[in-house]
């Protein structure tokens, strides 16, 4: 599995950072940075993906 982010759609709401802080960070330019493309905590990342207000992050289950 692999985490990908669309930094154009991201508004930096920070939900991902709250729910999966090891996998995501809102970067200095205000958009998300993926810290772990292969996440340690897949459950937290799935939660973050479902809560992202703009659908900016995706978890590709097979890659």
């Amino acid at each position: 599995m692999r985490v990908v982010a669309d930094r154009e759609v991201c508004v930096g709401a920070g939900s991902c950072e709250l729910l999966a802080p090891d996998a995501f960070k809102v970067d200095d330019d205000g958009a998300v940075r993926v810290l772990q493309e292969q996440p340690d905590d897949a459950a937290a990342v799935r939660d973050a993906v479902s809560q992202c207000p703009t659908g900016a992050i995706t978890l590709l289950e097979r890659d």
Binding site: E8, V9, C10, V11, G12, A13, G14, E17, L18, P21, K25, V26, D27, D28, D29, G30, A31
Partner: peptide
Amino acid sequence: DDPRHAKIRRIVSKTFTPR
């Protein structure tokens, strides 16, 4: 609306993150 909205919001979004 986006894309202008997102670009301007990202100026300050960093300040309001949990970290």
